[in-house]
Design a protein around this nucleic acid. Structure first.
Lengths: 348, 348
DNA sequence: TTGAAAGCGGTACCAA
DNA sequence: TTGGTACCGCTTTCAA
């Protein structure tokens, strides 16, 4: 702005007046200033402006996995809504499930001076958030708990939800149930796998590790993984998928090979009820989770000093058809087959 | 920070050292400062910090309709990607198709000092963007053109895409084709309706305004609207839906009443190929559109002075089944029926 | 109508 | 190890 003033041959203050369209500037003077602005491609520094005006930017950061996943899109929208009510803007960043990138993005947001941070962690060590003491940025974790630090978190009831989903399949006569999930680095996947195991153990069923596939964070990989499962000598009669991405992949595989297997997925998804066999799911309310986390963050920003909170959002099983398919052969055949030896196969 | 210094009985600079964990501060002094920081609930002002350090915030704003719409989620993710490559963060805001809110959000983002703005307009008058002269914020419009101002825009080939979709239905023998779309305030809906009309006119078919429903911006409304269409005395034999929200609503209605009508929708959507009757769509690449717009914005920020650009992204028809359903009665029956009088109905 | 000088809340540089 | 002082780019106040 000083440069502009010099070029236009006026004082700093006059330029300021022109830029902010304050009244009381001679038209010719204003024209000269505008000319200088254009020539120098000048752009006002809003940082300095806000500093002087005492305006704090009022932003929060949101680090999620991928906006294209409808689950996170819903989360993001709900966060935006709450932030708006509190007069804050939201800066969003997608980590793509990469711990390094999560850290990079979170650190970047902190440097940008966001007042608070909502984060769906990809990594398992969040001590870096405390690197900058006295920065005092408030952080609330979303969907997954923090690693190696104490902090607020709002999560789903993963173990219980998965357990109920698998119990549902067991109740319909299934004994060979596969689990299709994200890599073990993803907390939610691990917890849901735990629920899966709990359900099987409680029913006295063996856990066949060949049926547990932890490692398919994308639709196409989940589809490939499920195809392998269905091509096993002794394939599962039911599949439990750990989230909506895995669900859609699994359903694509089931459809591709025209398998008659039961299916239950964690996360509801659009059109689940419109499929040829409507999908049974363990549903929950992502928007509610996001709102709870955002409200907690704003409470902290307002001075809430309670110890770190852990809020758990419940799940609900919605039976639509795919989870109520019963296994093809009468109960007990699986056991009989296996006792006859691993290399033998039932004729049909 | 000055307050902290006073309370701790040290100089400003020492506090600064502690806050930024610079070396060379006596532990006891540091402890005193930390105590003061805690007591005063002090938080560093990053605005002032960035000003002094000469850091410009490097943010762009993105105003879209609703993140929950997968179309916009894809757009947002692609924008984020490009912005990141250019070292910028993205502040996102959802207008909910409300012109006032669009204006409010855009103005707010400008006040926050974003370097540039990407906007999917809900309104039709964007002169407010020029209210602040010399602010020189660059703006690129996305998906829909600007109103009453000259500005860059990246849009889809709406007329052509819709025309082809409807032609496809006509080619399969349909003469009564309904249009299900957003309100006339939504540019894209109007343009796609134009393509619809062009296709009918080119084929010498009459346009029955009772079959043109402009006003259903949500899935549930589109479903209700389509139900009404299907309940007409002389119902359409095919439906063209203007975007993915309307498509899903229309398909729900078709399924609910078990109607055997053909369907083509604008926008591809996840699981379109997995439905009992896979959905034929006019597809395109939202990410490509978003990338083009974001790159154009960064080119402008880098000094690109070309006149306002208008980039058009092509569409592509993907036939999957629903668009290839032929009308129930032989060609010409509709005409015969109508010539027999509006009050008569074909027995079957 | 225009300008000079102080100051927003920090950091940088150099001296003590 | 600590402190003093100039200054980042802009707005505000008050005087010319």
């Amino acid at each position: 702005m000083r440069d502009v003033a010099e070029v236009a041959g006026v004082s700093l203050k006059t330029v300021s007046r022109v830029v902010n369209m304050e009244p009381g500037v001679d038209d010719r003077t204003a024209a000269r200033v505008e000319g200088a602005i254009a020539r120098l491609a000048y752009r006002r520094n809003d940082g300095a402006r806000n500093l002087r005006k005492g305006i704090s930017l009022a932003m929060i950061g949101l680090v999620i996995e991928d906006l294209r996943n409808p689950f996170y899109a819903t989360v993001a929208r709900a966060v935006e809504e709450v932030a708006r009510r509190h007069g804050h803007a939201v800066v969003m960043a997608s980590s793509g499930e990469d711990p390094d990138r999560e850290r990079e993005l979170a650190t970047d947001l902190l440097k940008r001076g966001v007042q608070g941070l909502l984060i769906v962690p990809a990594g398992s060590d969040h001590r870096y958030l405390y690197a900058d003491r006295a920065m005092r940025t408030k952080v609330v974790f979303l969907d997954r708990p923090p690693g190696l630090i104490e902090a607020d978190a709002v999560v789903l009831d993963n173990v219980e939800g998965a357990r109920r989903g698998v119990e549902h399949l067991i109740a319909h006569g299934h004994r060979r149930i596969a689990f299709v999930g994200d890599p073990p680095t993803v907390q939610t996947s691990v917890e849901r796998a735990r629920g899966y195991r709990q359900a099987l153990e409680a029913a006295g069923l063996p856990i066949d590790e060949a049926l547990v596939r932890l490692g398919t964070p994308r639709v196409d990989l989940a589809e490939a993984s499920t195809r392998l499962l269905l091509a096993l000598q002794d394939p599962p009669t039911a599949i439990f998928a750990q989230n909506n991405r895995n669900s859609i992949g699994a359903l694509r595989a089931i459809r591709a090979v025209d398998a008659r297997v039961a299916f239950v997925g964690f996360d509801d998804f659009e059109l689940a009820d419109m499929l040829p066999v409507p999908a049974t799911v363990v549903a929950h309310d992502p928007a509610e989770m996001a709102r709870a986390a955002a409200e907690l963050l704003f409470a902290r920003l307002a001075g809430d000093q309670r110890p770190p909170q852990r809020i758990v959002i419940p799940t609900k099983l919605i039976a639509r058809g795919s989870g109520e398919i019963v296994p093809p052969s009468p109960q007990g055949v699986d056991f009989a087959t296996r006792e006859a030896g691993a290399s033998s196969r039932a004729a049909s």
